[in-house]
Amino acid sequence: MKKMLAAVLSLVLMLSVFSGALAVNEDIDGKIVIYTSMYQFEIDKMTEALKQEFPNLEVSFFYGGTGDLQTKIAGEMGDQHNGVLSCDMLMVAEPAYSLELKDYGYLEKMPVDAPETLFREGLSFDPEGYWYPVRTLNMVLAYNPEKYKAEELPKTYQAFAEDAGMQGMISMSNPLTSGTAMAAIVALSDKYGYEYFDALGKNKVMIESGSTALAKLQTGECKMIMILEESVLRIRKEEGSKISVVYPEDGVILIPSTVMTIAENKSANANLDACEAVTKWLLSEAGQNHILDGYMHSVLKGMPCPYDSIDTDELAKKDMGVNWERCYHDREEIRTKFQEAVTLSK
């Protein structure tokens, strides 16, 4: 009997400890809208998790490609850059966009404990707390081993653009509409100069969306494409595809996609408490596990890498590095150069 009581008591104790530890946040209520360019299945899972974590909070994800979302936001900002947005948080694009929004005064500071110790080495974040990286995207090269052998294909970005045997059979996303593609060409032009664009143009690179490019790999229409690692990992896991990743030897391009909170007076629901809570969750282990589930790399120190990929720290060593300031300020110039070299038909 006593033993039973003790057991029950300790059980109750444990439960109370755990419930305390789980600290389900019922105080966070209201509604927030998050714009994101994460994939739909990712969104579905995350919504579930957030529902469990914050049962009284209504989280609405809105999915769109980076370009589409940026356009929407630009339209909502209006000519004078003072319009109200229809969202409360953004998980989209890359740091350059965060810089831009910060300049326009659209972001809200989000305090996070000891960010320097939180993030991986070398990841940039805003020291004032206006934006943090929340997931790491990885631009790589991909090919279809069932159609072409790896030995015959380029192993570097340089070869990708310059190898004459690849002419007309390479593809990449449109930097004008894809934030990650934009970051990639910034990095590549830093490394190789604008001549890289000319080489791409000469090699008749096709500009289209990732899914179209993947289909072309499958049919053999393209030999190699520049694409985000997560797209490839996903079909490898879920569809058993044989399409493989090449981690370019002259450097991978890691793109830390950010999470930002919209300034209170310009947001849709002015629910800063909820935004803070969600941001903290996203940067916690629980949230980052979801990122990994979405085949993306984490931003925290000491997290594993997603399915079938390489260890994140290893990757970081190969990172080509993107100059975000340049990506923001020189955007027009880089775009124009790219267009002239690549998309203008001669």
Partner: peptide
């Protein structure tokens, strides 16, 4: 194939912000 038309350009421009 780099064959652009006025409509695609319009949408592209629209996607470039204000």
């Amino acid at each position: 194939g780099n064959v652009h038309t006025v409509t695609t350009r319009i949408v592209e421009y629209y996607g470039m912000g204000v």
